[in-house]
Design a protein around this nucleic acid. Structure first.
Lengths: 205, 205
DNA sequence: CCCCGGGGTGAGCGGGCGCTTAGGAAGCCG
DNA sequence: CGGCTTCCTAAGCGCCCGCTCACCCCGGGG
């Protein structure tokens, strides 16, 4: 229940109540079975409503996925930008970016799973919009790495490639993370922050 | 066509010819759209056959996914085991394991995508079988890391966690790799081999 | 020559899908 | 009280899914 309790926080500004119940039900269902294997009847059922009720609040099933994608991507982007713009040296900022980004992917791994792995089911126009957001995520992390290289703190031969790898590593947390597993989101965030510093060649101390 | 040419190599021992055409068509379709969004009519169409022909060679659509999963996992496991058992120090073996594993995920990113991201669509019993194979992949990499730590060559505070992260990094290549992108499989393999050594804290030279 | 069996097809079944529509219960206003 | 709005449901439409079945084509053996 812990994860679901935090789930609702992400969707607090979706109104009315029924629309919010539908979107959280959709997140759960999409994360569990995937977009295409989820039926509108299943979503409505989880939200305690009839199948037709879904179409009062959303035009199509795809619109639900789109809304989830937008909210999730904006949240993730905010996390990274906050870290990029925070005080401290490049190492602190990279470490904080990875820690927070990973923690989000672990804590909200249902949302993250949908956000990261169901993009392909979006309509062309919606997909293009999401791709634009994703370029910003990449840029935020790359900026930190470039700062570290410029400051002589990081030894990173291939900056774009290493940035891609760091982000890729974080994103994949959504695939394997299990709330019943032995690692907490905090622990994974800590481990990954350290690994990211190693990847960019940060000379400790 | 390059990638598809190499594709056929993986399925060379599937007979008769029609069964092989069906399995390669299924890999393409599953990788492109996902298992649930792919229709049996689409698979048969890509193989140049009528929808009914599929059921002469495979009992169900799920059996196709299962066969693809098994072959792919065995191939990936062999790659890692060969590296684990090769001559040379832990650093050479880890580097070779990551390089070869990543190259496979990039070159055969259609197969790899299906193998890594469509597991959830397998029937319970088939899923269990695949999970058993996956535990072996993890064990193969962990063995190399443990060797490196025991030899004093690696500085790895959290061996299981770092092993998981290295594998996760490699697997995620299948998600983002694009044959039309600017990086070749060889280049990605080289970059990732270096990153993996950094992650385990290998003190260069 | 006929027959036979393996690989193939065209047509279609039963069912569940995304989505629509007609209408009803509940609250608020005069 | 009646009428309007908001939110919702029961029923079901049209479509396409996974899969089946009756039949066909064709090469090889007696």
């Amino acid at each position: 229940m812990g994860a679901e309790g935090q789930q609702s926080g992400q969707w607090a500004d979706v109104t009315p109540d029924a629309a919010r119940r539908l979107v959280t039900a959709a997140v759960e269902a999409f994360a569990e079975r995937g977009y295409h294997a989820t039926t509108t009847r299943d979503i409505a059922g989880r939200a305690g409503m009839s199948p037709a009720a879904l179409y009062i609040h959303y035009k199509t099933k795809e619109e639900l996925l789109y809304r989830i994608s937008i909210v999730g991507h904006r949240l993730a982007l905010d996390i990274l930008r906050r870290a990029r713009d925070s005080a401290g040296g490049p190492a602190d900022r990279l470490s904080e970016a990875v820690r927070a980004f990973v923690r989000w992917h672990a804590e909200h791994h249902t949302t993250a799973r949908v956000v990261q792995y169901e993009l392909g089911a979006l309509a062309e126009e919606h997909y293009a919009e999401i791709v634009a957001l994703r370029r910003n995520t990449d840029a935020a992390v790359r900026a930190i790495v470039e700062d570290g290289v410029a400051a002589g703190e990081f030894d990173t031969p291939d900056v774009p490639g290493t940035t891609l790898a760091v982000l890729s590593l974080c994103i994949d947390v959504a695939r394997w993370f299990n709330a019943e597993g032995k690692r907490t989101p905090d622990e994974v965030g800590e481990l990954y922050a350290d690994l990211a510093l190693r990847m960019v060649g940060y000379a400790k101390k």
